[in-house]
C-alpha cells in the first residue's frame, strides 16, 4: 500500500480508533497517543495491508490491544481487566456514524441562522473561543455577543422541536 492509498484508506479510520481508545482508556490524551502509535505501526507494515480484507476491524483490533497493553502498564491490571469497556466493531462504527450525522445536522441548522448568529455559535460552542475573541472577530460589544448567542440558541431549540414533531 503506497502513501497515497494509505492516507486515503487508513487516515479516515482515525475517528473510530480515537473513539474506541477514549472509551477504553477514559482519557483523550492517552487515546490520541495510542492512536498515533497504531498509525506508526500500520505505516511500518503497510505492505501487508493490501492483503487485509476488513481494514477497519484490523485497525480497531490493533487499538484494542494497544489500549490493553497501556492499561496493564499502568499496573491496574487486576482492577481494569474486569472493567475494561470493550466496544465491538459494530458499536464503534455506529457511534462514529451517529457523531457524523449529528455534526451534519448541526451544520444544516446553523446554515438556516443569520450569519452573525451562526458565526457566534460556531466560535462559542464548536471552536470553544472565549467571549473577548468573539467580540473582536464580530466587531460587537460583549452585550451584543451575549444577546446574539442567546437568540441563536433559542432558534436552534425551535428548529430541533420542529424536527422531533
Amino acid at each position: 500500500m503506497d502513501q497515497a492509498k494509505f492516507k486515503e484508506n487508513i487516515i479516515p479510520l482515525q475517528s473510530a480508533m480515537q473513539l474506541l481508545a477514549e472509551h477504553m482508556l477514559g482519557d483523550v490524551a492517552d487515546a490520541e497517543d495510542v492512536v498515533q502509535d497504531v498509525f506508526v505501526a500500520l505505516w511500518s507494515r503497510r505492505d501487508e495491508l493490501d492483503r487485509v480484507v476488513k481494514l477497519d476491524s484490523y485497525c480497531l483490533q490493533m487499538v484494542r490491544l494497544r489500549c490493553i497493553d497501556l492499561i496493564r502498564k499502568r499496573k491496574r491490571d487486576a482492577f481494569h481487566n474486569e472493567q475494561i469497556a470493550y466496544l465491538s466493531d459494530k458499536e464503534v462504527t455506529m457511534q462514529v456514524e451517529e457523531t457524523r450525522n449529528d455534526a451534519a445536522l448541526l451544520d444544516r441548522l446553523l446554515d438556516e441562522l443569520p450569519e452573525k448568529q451562526r458565526r457566534a455559535l460556531r466560535m462559542k460552542y464548536v471552536e470553544e473561543r472565549d467571549t473577548q475573541y468573539i467580540e473582536q472577530a464580530l466587531q460587537m460589544s460583549s452585550n451584543n455577543v451575549y444577546t446574539t448567542i442567546s437568540r441563536a440558541i433559542q432558534s436552534l431549540k425551535d428548529k430541533i422541536k420542529t424536527l422531533k414533531i
Binding site: 482515525q14 473513539l19 492512536v35 498509525f39 457523531t99 449529528d102 455534526a103 448541526l106 460552542y125 464548536v126
Partner: peptide
Amino acid sequence: RLFEAARRREADQRRQQQLS
C-alpha cells in the same frame, strides 16, 4: 449533543491532518 458531535468532528479533522 450536536455541538459535541461538531467538536469531535473538528478535532478528528485536525487530528487526521496531523496524522497525514
